[in-house]
Design a protein around this nucleic acid. Sequence first.
DNA 1: CTCGTGGTGCTTTTT
DNA 2: GCACCACGAG
Length: 732
Amino acid sequence: MAARTERARTLLDGLNPEQREAVITTEGPLLVLAGAGSGKTRVICHRLAYILAAGFCGPRNVIAVTFTNKAAGEMKERVSRLTGLDVRSLWVSTFHSAAVRMLRAAGNLVGVKRDFTIYDEGDSEALVKRIIKDRGWDPREEKPRHYAELISRAKDDALDPDDWLEKTFLHRAVAEKIYEVYREYEKRLARAGALDFGSLLLRAVKLLRHPEGKRRFGERFQYVMVDEYQDTNAVQYEMVRLLAAAHGNVCVVGDDDQAIYEWRGANRANILAFEKTFPKAKVITLTRNYRSTQGILDAASHLIGNNTRLREKKLRAERGSGSVPRLIRARNEYDEAEQVVRAIRTNLKAGAAKKDHAVFYRVHALSRVLEEVLSASGIEYQLLRGVSFYQRAEIKDVVAYLKLLVNPDDDGSFLRICNKPARGFGAKTLERLVAAATERNLSLMAYLRKCGEDRENRPAQRKKEAAFVEMLDELQSLLKKESVSIVVREVLERTRYLELYDQNDPEDLQRFENVREFLSAAQDFEESADEPTLAAFLERITLATDADDYDPSADRVVLSTLHAAKGLEFRHVFIVGCEEGLLPHGRALGEEADAEMEEERRLAYVGMTRAKDTLTMSYAFERRMYGQIQARTRSRFLSEAGIDDTSDWGGTERETRSFFVGRTPATLSGSRDTGIVGCGVLSEGDSVRHHRFGTGVVLYVAESGDENEVVQIRFKNKVKNLMTKFAHLTRV
DNA sequence: CTCGTGGTGCTTTTT
DNA sequence: GCACCACGAG
């Protein structure tokens, strides 16, 4: 017992008093407000480890919920290292994986059959589209994406079609249409034995309310932990509440300033609701920032100070003052990318690694130019996100075959692949088939099996259909005796799927490669999984994302959207495209878009607080967007953050613009007047004079020597970043 | 049934 | 500018 206590106590070493308090407060409800860079992950892991090491309960009585599989995996790994315990029975997972796990075990209690299929967003949208078409509506008018999104939001708020109709503020006629689609959508999901992401959570909640489910899962978990709590939606909140109901030991960790997913149903006010639901909740605020220097933190704090905040907190840098954020002004997106890359190259020369750098942008579209310029410079990079591997058409096709084997009622998968390659399921045939099956409320496969015979003649057609059914039956029987990878191989073989591809077409060749990669993923899976079934494999890939692929050890510059940047940190951070309409995004600019504007601000805040040593923001005077060149205005966030543009070189915005337009960079450099310092002359500690700011001392010189040299100078009461070529500095 | 073209319409996207 | 989809011609 003493040894145990001793071991638990060492877990507190190296934690600050607040962190320590959070770790040892294991009983009762606890809300940890963790500012950016305040050691949140550390607290969560140590707290989990502490509970286990102290022997308060066994691993199977703890559940920790995070938002990505990757975060979950790392957490588990870390807890294992910290405790030396076997953590296999510890539930560390995403909300969705936890839901799946419970439903696979006891879904029958709430009407979920064992072999249910999971529909991802693409599958849901495809289903919505079929419903809209079946109604005879034009999918260009009634946009499936729009409908699918509304349905998904409704589920985030736990609203069934009737609840939703009652609550919606949309125009009656519009609302009725959506209601109709939503109802039909639910009907068809049920018929297909499928659950979408929203239903997974809703069914899990239903299960936790069921007496038997409550007994099995509600009472099992003595300790509940939730990460990124500010991004939970209403249903996830309810799930947390139910999981914690029996024992009341629930710890949620979050930061309302970093809530960036309200647009998809998250509710950052859950942070306030927590204290209402658990009136005795203890609140611990972590405000010591171990990541960034004070200069960066000040800018970020200034920015976020423009929001109305739920829980205001002031972060303090533990690392000292450091440099203040820099601003890059560029003529266009190419100039912007070139300046960023130049700055990166300067850092590389000074000994920094490529992986110490990250470039963030609001929209993926901005990555292209950066990629071009990085490639041209021979600097390796890795792109976060982009189309997920598992979202590619060819992968979804193969997956659809597999899903159909596990759950033959999955009409979505059936329709996707029944005619790939062509085997007699043309448009007309399918139309008839769907109509006949719908009439009998049967899935397509069930209809083919049961009623294939009693349809009118067409013997040739029936033969083809029978062959298809037989092929799937054979594959299905393989499932019982062969491993996942062998089944995948057989599927490719027997369906002759790969014959769709032309070996001479480079795009097809890529698809071919992707399918091969998929095959090797299947192999990896069956070698490593606890339960190497096809259903488990499908589950994993449906709930997997590309975020899970980011490799922090690879020495490459990271390109990422601001959203995907959450949770990461880099020595040198660049945020490009700081322009009105981009960051903040155009959709947040309207009169009645205050909430959106605040979310944009939080997004910028998240990006800025990723930086450890230097932060550079940039904007361009013009940029090609949607195929045309547009004049751009610098983002309001820059001045809100105190990253003051105009003062950097001593002119006004208009002067800057006219100065740039029509000039090439070469004509910009150098100075005509004697006494004015040129590039490559200054070094740290030099005293200089600026015509507006007076005299100051050079703090440091970035990109020394070339025409983009930037010097940081401390004037009487402010620190400025100036470009030597514009600043017209003289020596004192 | 497949291929080509033209029209459209475009944040973000943990699961 | 680009990617995706629907529709029409072959």
